[in-house]
Design a protein around this nucleic acid. Structure first.
Lengths: 339, 339
DNA sequence: CTGAAAGCGCTTACAG
DNA sequence: CTGAAAGCGCTTACAG
């Protein structure tokens, strides 16, 4: 297969490369007749512009990078879905990388994406990321960047988030409203902002409703997965016999807890009520179905790309980029794991 | 920020661009002293080669494309995970697209990836794909391609699959071995090869064990999701009162069925046994935990990229590409939804 | 060991 | 309306 180039078309038609190029791009200063001729020939030869050359000239790759902590994760895969759909609509392709919650990997991947000269970067931070120099490096390169969900307040870029503190407050309040008095919290690791915020929301709700905060009721789930939920619930049953409610940082953890309670003959929600967080579709499939907070992953993906797109466009036009932080709505979903 | 180029380094050092380029790539015909000097200066300026120019010269993008029917899916997200990890190790980035089970979208996305001049393509077909001309087009372009899981036997490329028919046979036999006599099958749509193969495995197992095949026990789940499982199970209960076993095409469908049976007071596995397919981790979290067939998604991803990598390397060296089809092992996982 | 030169395939400012 | 020419930033065959 010989590659079809502008030169090829020009030779076939006996005109210049310049004219061919302009004809294909519908420049106004080419005659209709020539345009028609060129387009026909291009079609006949199945001409596809060489993107490598186009990239080099235009200094654009029409490609964006995305870094998430994990791909195999209900929430992040929904975000990915929203991002790639939206990107495709606007003519962008998405390179996806996964940091595995490792700050070093995250750093390397940022470097990779910058070397690839992607037009923009979207990122949700690893739980262990405290040093933000690699993120500031992106901004120094003047590469548009949008952070979502797991963000750092210290980085000066656009963000798409939910109000974790408030949502956790609503979740905890729902437990209180339905009669719980001793409410445990299965939280995430100490560092990530969303883990901190959800914890603070939990604590605030207790305080506002006259329930004393008891740190022995807070369990840390380092990896925020199913097994962590199983372990925390098992430990909880050993430590306490008066707990009547659990607020888990995420549905996965809550589902692990329900599994343990089901097996030990503890009735949910009669003996212990459980609140999750995220509204993963599986939450409605388990028994009892899980009350939770709806966190709009797909929408977050769509909004994240849209914001990035706006910045890329502004940059191209040489306009000043106005940073934005959008807070998406969450909602309380009542099901059968709470009264 | 001024871009740092080879020219920049050359000027700073008072030598030629050629020598700078060769020094950075450790050509043997550059003196050690010059190399050291060049490398130092490159480091000082934080030089990054312009990939657009490199791509244009080398005709390689060091990028591969991946098309899956759905991203938000336990099996495919595991495959994605395996692919991007493996690709990163070999210095490749992965552009991910989702066909949404649409054959037209799949076609467009193939075109997109070819226009982007990715070095290779990995694809799992949409359920509706019957026309394979877009896949043959990839091969005509001499772009290496590997198909996985949802494949077409008609396309002449390398493949990574499991033996769906045999695995379904094992699943059905397990139901028979544990005492089931009237076994329903919740199958997928009529077209996809894996849906056909699992159905055939089910049918063969019945026949081999003296159980008459009854087409009224076969329900079609067009989208193979949770809701389909709920619907099929609901319909099954209306149509039959003697069924004592169900083999579902995938865990998601099985979980929908379990939900219905739990709600209607039908005991699993005492009244009806259920087998899933895939071994999604949630299968062990529900009550009762689901017996299933383990389908190695992560491993499939790793193997798929490795095979593609081999072909890309062969192509680069001008060697002949030897096509391969690898069949990965599956395993019966016994849990509490079967006796 | 070093470097001038051609070329990858395109875009676009400029001249006519 | 058309086209010659420069240039994007790199690589590499070739000459010295």
């Amino acid at each position: 297969m010989r590659e079809v180039t502008l030169k090829q078309i020009a030779e076939n038609l006996g005109i210049s490369i310049t004219t061919v190029s302009k004809a294909l791009k519908d420049y106004p200063d080419v005659s209709k007749k020539t345009k028609a001729l060129v387009k026909e020939e291009a079609k006949r030869l199945n001409y596809k512009p060489n993107v490598f050359a186009v990239n080099l000239r235009t200094k654009e790759s029409k490609t964006v990078g995305l870094i998430v902590p994990e791909v195999v994760h209900h929430f992040f895969s929904s975000v990915i879905n929203g991002i790639i759909e939206q990107a495709e609509k606007k003519g962008y392709l998405v390179i996806i990388l996964q940091s595995n919650e490792s700050s070093e990997l995250e750093k390397k991947q940022i470097d990779l994406l910058i070397s690839k000269r992607v037009d923009g970067i979207m990122i949700s931070l690893a739980s262990t990321t405290t040093d933000i120099s690699h993120l500031n490096y992106v901004l120094e390169q003047e590469t548009p960047m949008v952070m979502f969900d797991k963000i750092s307040k210290l980085v000066d870029c656009s963000k798409i988030i939910i109000n974790d503190r408030e949502a956790a407050y609503v979740a905890t309040k729902h437990l209180i409203d339905t009669g719980c008095k001793r409410i445990a919290h299965f939280r995430g690791a100490l560092l990530p902002q969303n883990s901190i915020d959800r914890f603070l929301g939990y604590k605030k709700a207790l305080e506002d409703h006259g329930i004393p905060y008891d740190s022995s009721l807070v369990y840390i789930c380092e990896r925020v997965d199913y097994q962590n939920g199983v372990d925390a619930a098992t430990q909880l049953l050993q430590d306490h016999d008066d707990v009547d409610g659990v607020f888990a940082i995420t549905d996965l953890v809550a589902i692990g807890a329900i599994k343990v309670f089901n097996e030990k003959g503890i009735k949910v929600p009669d003996d212990i009520s459980i609140m999750g967080f995220s509204n993963w579709f599986v939450s409605s499939a388990i028994t009892p179905s899980l009350s939770t907070i709806d966190q709009p992953g797909y929408e977050m993906g769509v909004k994240t790309f849209k914001l990035l797109y706006r910045e890329m466009k502004a940059k191209k036009k040489g306009e000043k980029i106005v940073l934005k932080t959008k807070v998406l709505e969450t909602a309380l979903i009542k099901r059968n794991s709470t009264k």
